[in-house]
Structure formats: structure tokens, C-alpha cells
Nucleic acid binder design. Structure first.
Lengths: 112, 112
DNA sequence: CCCTTGGTTCGATAACTGTCTATGTTGACG
DNA sequence: CGTCAACATAGACAGTTATCGAACCAAGGG
């Protein structure tokens, strides 16, 4: 009843070869995290108190402020973060289903 | 006693903001998997019988042979795959420590 | 109102990346 | 040797991306 994007997406990486479509979908997530600046922003949001952070809390990653905004947009477009304006500030939080999906992707096979 | 690269690398994504160096290292892995073709190649190797596959087993991903070779090289350089020549064929297998490292990265926090 | 502060959007640019064709290289087999 | 099959490397090119400064938009105070 939610968004159609809430599906499990893909089996574990080690289960079987991905189809083109599965690969396309999963690659988007990996690609979004495949940049050092974005990874720092993501971990900053994910580990911030209350599960959310305003941009001003996490902007200290060594690039200009427009660049921070650009990367946050990419993370939003990849479905990893959501944003909400509250008064003067904009708060970002991790999309909850995402970590579950990634965990599923990396679930190890039978350990022997 | 093994390679110095066998370190845990990084804490879970949700534990604390990554340092620049941690982000750099982890992003390399994510970036390598952030391409649909590479993801198909990786899953094909990871799921192949015996834990390894010759290039000829996995080359059917819709791009030319040199392109396959190029992507396999990227996966090797990222430390995700290793290769070994045996006679005419070259076999690729998943670097075992990698899945463990990725699993650690995505370990969920306390679920409440 | 105007100004300040927090963020986003725009436009430009340099760097990187995925893809191809063409060419090498390596090993097996007559 | 010569040839063939399996992969890799080299070089070229188009498309994408990370970055910046400048301009813009939104919300609160004076």
C-alpha cells in the first residue's frame, strides 16, 4: 500500500547472477555511496542524534556548501535520504528501508 | 600475519561519521559495485559453482569482450576479485574478506 | 520593509568513466 | 613453427560527474 519501490529489490549478491534490471537498481544505491563526500554525509546523518541532522550539522566535509547540497540531492535521488524543511533549517534523515535492503544484499551465503 | 589490508577498515555506516580516510577506502568498494555491468559480473562470480568462474562463463552481459575485461580489472583493483590463469582460461573468485567487510559496514544499529 | 542566515539552483569547466575497435599476449594443439 | 582461442591492453571518443562562484529563494528578526 506504500510506494511500489518498497519491494525487496534483490537477492543477496552471492545467491545468483543478477539480471540486468536487478543490477541497474542495486547499482544505483552502491553508486550513490561510491563517493567519499557522500559517504561522509551519509554516515553523519545516519549516526546523528535522533536519526536526523540539519545541513549545518554535517557541512564540514571539506567542500563548498553548494557542493554539499549537490551531494545531498544525489543521496535523495538515490532514495537513501529524505529531507524536510523545518523553519530556517532543512533536516535530512536516513530512509529506514534502505539499510534493511542493503543488509539483505550482503547477507552471507551458507558459511561452508 | 597476512596482508596489511586485512584490517576491519571501517565501523558500521550508522555508528559515527566517517573520517576522510575511512570514507575514501569504503567508497572505493561501493564505487566498484556502482555499475550495473560490474554488479552482474560480480554476482556471476560470487554465485558460480565452486566460488570461481572463468571469464568465458560470465561474459554474457551485453557488452564487448574488452569491456568485460575492463570491468573485471576494476573489480580486481578495488580488491573485490582475484584472478588466476590456468591454462588457456583465467578464473576469477571473490576475495573472501570482502563480503565480511561489507557485512560489517552495513550491520544495523540497535533496532530501537 | 530590508537585512541576515541557511540552503538550493544555475552555468561553466576540468576530470573521470564506459564503451568501442584494433592490436597484443599467452597458451594449447597440430 | 603456425594457427587458433581466450583475455588483456592501447587509443579514441562521447557522456557523465564533481567542483566552484554567482545568483536565487525562504524564513526570521530589526
Amino acid at each position: 500500500m506504500r510506494e511500489p519501490d518498497a519491494e525487496p529489490c534483490c537477492p543477496p549478491l552471492t545467491e545468483r547472477p543478477f539480471t540486468a534490471e536487478e543490477a541497474e537498481r542495486s547499482a544505483r544505491m552502491f553508486k550513490a555511496l561510491g563517493d567519499p563526500v557522500r559517504l561522509r554525509l551519509f554516515t553523519a546523518v545516519a549516526s546523528h542524534e535522533g536519526g536526523e541532522a540539519c545541513v549545518c550539522d554535517i557541512s564540514d566535509v571539506g567542500v563548498s556548501q553548494p557542493t554539499v547540497s549537490h551531494h545531498l540531492k544525489k543521496l535523495r535521488e538515490a532514495g537513501l535520504l529524505t529531507s524536510e524543511r523545518r523553519g530556517t533549517w532543512v533536516f535530512y534523515r536516513v530512509e529506514p528501508s534502505v539499510l534493511a535492503a542493503m543488509g539483505r544484499l550482503l547477507r552471507a551465503p551458507a558459511p561452508a
